[in-house]
């Protein structure tokens, strides 16, 4: 028994010993784990900045929001000058708040971000509303004034020069080198033509024409039409842009890269455009695909570099009609039955 006992004791003591060791080890491991957690916590704290705490953000945001709301609510009943000043201040504050939010995006959760954004949107909405309510006169006056200002500057550029210098077009053409920009101007009741030798790769200007028929056989670099009335103007492929300004009761036809139409009424355009056509301040402009042809047309297409297969004649952007969804009332397409097919002069 003895040895057995001894053995038993031995095993017992070994067991005791083992258990103690295990406990010890466990404790150590636990301690290490706790230390580790502490260390990580500290590390995290040392890295995070006070400004990046959620509480800081929400309290600052709330405070600013309240402040802006106060500003806005103080607008009702106050007089014009005060309202103006308050609105100005509110606008600045909203912008600052937006910036603060942007800077804080990094450490915000999706939810807080959404909340803050919608709060900002609401502020902006009520700012706009109050501005509308408080200063309606200013708004309309502002619009009218810009229009008038536009008109005035237009008139200035268009009509002021005649008082001091010869007509604007003429004066500028003369001052610029007239060899580069040329065409016809100040004509009535004429049949006018140009050949490709005359116009290829040049800027062509037709201005102050009425009751004329014009045929430009060739590929100019740009084509400018100004102050045209009751004319029929056909032109070969224009390498870049066609500008139309103040044109009435006329029929035009050309291929081009871009078409820019201004202040034009009751005019038909038989168009090949590889990029886009736009109209601005126009009414009664109608479009149909380019259908004129002459013997060297193909050749001129090659000179111009235009793609003969891409024609966006019926995609017209109206800069005076920005409502999406509703088509502009200022232009139409010409129904197929009404399109002109005979271009003989």
């Amino acid at each position: 028994m003895e040895p057995a006992h001894e053995f038993g004791e031995e095993t017992d003591s070994a067991g005791d010993n083992g258990a103690a060791k295990v406990q010890d080890r466990l404790q150590k491991r636990n301690q290490a784990r706790i230390d580790d957690v502490e260390r990580r916590k500290e590390e995290k704290e040392s890295q995070s900045v006070a400004e990046e705490k959620l509480e800081y953000f929400s309290s600052t945001f709330k405070r600013e929001q309240m402040c802006i709301e106060d500003l806005l609510s103080g607008c009702s009943g106050a007089d014009q000058g005060v309202v103006n000043q308050r609105l100005e201040e509110a606008t600045i504050k909203i912008v600052q708040l937006q910036k603060f939010l942007n800077d804080s995006v990094l450490f915000l959760t999706q939810y807080e971000l959404r909340q803050a954004q919608s709060a900002l949107q609401k502020l902006q909405g009520s700012l706009a509303e109050i501005r509308e309510k408080a200063l309606p006169k200013k708004k309309f006056a502002f619009r009218a004034r810009t229009k008038v200002a536009d008109k005035v500057s237009e008139q200035e550029t268009d009509s002021a020069p005649p008082y001091c210098t010869p007509p604007a077009d003429l004066g500028e053409v003369v001052r610029g080198s007239s060899s580069k920009l040329f065409g016809f101007s100040n004509m009535d009741n004429q049949y006018l033509t140009k050949t490709s030798e005359e116009i290829n790769k040049r800027d062509v200007l037709l201005s102050h024409l009425s009751n004329c028929k014009v045929r430009l056989y060739g590929s100019p670099s740009t084509l400018h039409l100004k102050h045209i009335d009751k004319c029929e103007i056909l032109c070969g492929p224009v390498a870049t842009s066609v500008f139309i300004d103040d044109c009435r009761n006329s029929t035009l036809s050309f291929p081009c890269q871009q078409l820019r139409t201004h202040s034009t009424t009751d005019t038909q355009v038989y168009l090949h455009v590889t990029s886009r056509a736009i109209i601005e301040d126009c009414h009664g402009v109608s479009f149909a695909p380019f259908s004129w042809s002459y013997p060297t047309l193909e050749e001129d297409f090659n000179v111009s570099g235009l793609n003969k297969d891409s024609n966006n004649w019926n995609q017209v952007d109206d800069f005076y009609w920005l409502a999406a969804g509703t088509p502009s009332p200022n232009w139409t397409t010409i129904p197929e039955a009404d399109r002109k097919t005979n271009w003989d002069p």
Partner: peptide, 12 residues
């Protein structure tokens, strides 16, 4: 640079 007609506009 090729738009001589509107250089005055441009300046303005």
């Amino acid at each position: 640079s090729a738009d001589r007609l509107r250089l005055q506009d441009c300046k303005q």
